[in-house]
């Protein structure tokens, strides 16, 4: 009796970081696999550079129609930095980070709620705001781990291969990739937290990502449609050629703004709504 009474004395709520630690523990294997996949694909493309890059690339580009070069974002592909940006940062790296971030964003609240596993956490002595913010932090941390692993792999590989890619360029591209993946992942996360519907959240965020890619490539091709790329988060990310020209603060700022707006709106809705209906 006395032991229980003692146990009951004082109220104890969740210390900061408990939700975050739980999510990271739960996602640890997924994160490692995604990081390996991303490093593998990034390294593979970069390793092809000596056999396709430089002068050989110039010959190939001459044979391609200029519209296709624009559409594929190959304008700067002949330089080492341009090559890594076009193949890794603009294409497969971006796709992998996006798929991971949007999928995870949809799972972290809406998916957990649909599976029923969120119920005990919401019923625990932790506020909804804390649950929301720490789960969102987990998303950004996972994206950071992926991008950091990719950056490390590319830095090592380009220096071993003697490719002329500045480390600052890689860092600028990686910061953009983190913000791009984080922003669209946050969109999925926020939509999921606001509605509790994972399919809707992932579908909408994926549609926004696809549309943003289309807008970024149609913009320069269609006359008088430069506004298109201005609306595209993808253009905000790669429009400034970060690997060659460094950080494009305007575009990166817009990515961050998108994330903040989505996060705030989603958080407000999540605090207010019914869970598990």
């Amino acid at each position: 009796m006395s032991a229980l009474t003692e146990l009951r004395a004082g109220t104890t709520t969740a210390p900061a970081g408990t939700v975050l630690r739980g999510v990271l523990h739960e996602q640890r294997r997924t994160v490692v696999l995604w990081a390996l996949a991303l490093c593998g694909v990034g390294s593979m493309y970069t390793a092809f550079y000596p056999s396709v890059g430089g002068a050989k690339m110039d010959v190939m580009l001459e044979a391609m129609p200029p519209e296709l070069i624009t559409a594929m974002g190959f304008e700067a592909i002949a330089t080492a930095g341009g090559y890594v940006q076009s193949t890794v940062y603009q294409l497969l790296g971006a796709i992998l980070v996006l798929v991971c971030a949007i999928g995870l964003g949809g799972r972290l609240v809406a998916g957990a709620e649909e599976d029923g596993v969120l119920e005990l956490e919401i019923a625990a002595p932790v506020s909804r705001t804390t649950v929301y913010l720490e789960r969102l932090a987990a998303l950004w941390l996972v994206a950071l781990v992926l991008v950091a692993a990719l950056t490390a792999a590319l830095t090592a590989l380009t220096s071993v291969m003697g490719m002329d890619v500045a480390i600052t360029g890689l860092l600028a591209g990686s910061l953009g990739l983190w913000l791009f993946g984080g922003a669209l992942g946050t969109l999925a996360f926020a939509l999921g937290a606001a509605t509790g519907r994972r399919g809707y959240a992932v579908g909408t965020a994926a549609a926004v990502a696809t549309l943003s890619y289309v807008l970024a490539y149609l913009g320069p091709l269609v006359e008088g449609a430069a506004w298109m790329e201005q609306l595209s988060p993808y253009h905000w990310y790669v429009g400034g050629d970060p690997l060659t020209d460094g950080v494009a603060w305007g575009g990166y700022g817009l990515l961050l703004a998108l994330a903040v707006v989505a996060a705030v709106a989603g958080g407000l809705a999540f605090r207010r709504r019914d869970i598990m209906v």
Binding site: T12, A14, T18, H25, E26, D115, V117, E119, E121, A124
Partner: peptide, 27 residues
């Protein structure tokens, strides 16, 4: 809960300790 759902890839002990951690370690 009436329909208890538990997360995958975790042992019963780990999960219970996590739930106790959400209560500041109580339990």
């Amino acid at each position: 809960p009436g329909e208890l759902a538990l997360p995958p890839r975790t042992t019963a002990g780990e999960y219970l300790r996590h739930l106790a951690a959400l209560r500041g370690g109580r339990g």
